[in-house]
């Protein structure tokens, strides 16, 4: 168990649940505990679908393959079970929850992680939340705002990482967290992710991004190129630079 990869995806295929639209096509990917991987790829190549399939989104149906999380099969688990097991996905498009404050939301989420009859220590929670807010450089009043309701694009992304800081996952999948951030916000958010990784070196991170710029701030161990539902190339950080220069022309599906 201890030497099992954090995430081991073998021949994973998936389609839209009630339509015959295949998106993931026998995809392979393995992440060892503590590693940082980046996935890059053209629009529509299936990056978000991969993230959502790993999180258990009901719009997609797995048609083949396996996804093991620390040696345990993910695909039969409910989305909430996956979250409780330590998987976190930062959404490309976070949803708004009117009337539910961030503080209330996170308190309830942490409470859900405790066993029956166990009560969350509210002082500890306050401390944790304040620390996370300091890390993401948001005002304390931020926690009183309803989750993503009326937030700017950048605030929504910050809020995703704020949640990550409080929920402390062991596998974090960040789907285009850098999109919509200005350069200052990008630094703050990247610095936040790096700090969390330093605090917990066992935490595995999968970054989905279009921009090499993010990888200047968060140094990946591996970079993968995803085209048409599968990983077509894997390399080190230098691969991102190459992509930045050449684009994806060399990997367009030959059809």
């Amino acid at each position: 168990m201890s030497n099992a990869p954090a995430l081991d995806i073998r021949g994973l295929s998936a389609k839209v649940a009630d339509e015959e639209i295949s998106i993931l096509k026998s995809l392979d990917l393995a992440l060892n505990p503590g590693e940082i991987h980046a996935i890059m790829g053209p629009n529509g190549s299936g990056k978000s679908t991969l993230a959502k399939v790993l999180a258990g989104h009901p719009s997609y149906q797995v048609t083949g393959g396996e996804a093991l999380y620390l040696g345990q099969s993910l695909l039969d688990m409910e989305p909430d079970e996956r979250a409780l097991a330590g998987i976190f996905m930062a959404f490309q498009y976070p949803v708004e929850i009117p009337g539910v404050s961030i503080a209330n939301f996170l308190r309830t989420a942490l409470q859900a992680r405790l066993g029956r009859g166990e009560e969350l220590d509210l002082f500890d929670f306050q401390d944790q939340l304040l620390e996370a807010m300091k890390l993401l450089e948001v005002e304390p009043s931020f926690a009183e705002r309803p989750v993503n309701d009326g937030f700017s694009g950048g605030e929504k992304k910050r809020n995703e990482i704020l949640q990550m800081a409080v929920l402390k996952p062991s596998l974090a999948i960040l789907d285009e967290t850098d999109s919509g951030l200005d350069i200052d916000a990008l630094q703050v958010v990247s610095n936040g992710v790096n700090t969390l990784h330093k605090e917990n070196p066992e935490m595995t991170i999968l970054l989905i991004t279009h921009y090499q710029r993010l990888l200047d701030y968060i140094k990946p161990d591996f970079v993968h190129v995803m085209v048409d539902g599968k990983i077509v190339r894997t390399g080190g950080p230098e691969l991102a630079l190459e992509l930045e220069k050449q684009g994806y022309v060399n990997w367009k599906p030959s059809s």
Binding site: D80, G99, A109
Partner: peptide, 24 residues
Amino acid sequence: FYLLSRGFSRQQAERLIVLGFLGD
């Protein structure tokens, strides 16, 4: 789904959404 992905049970998720909606 957003709430499930944060570890809420379906029932907790519905409760939070409804209370937020009305609490407004």
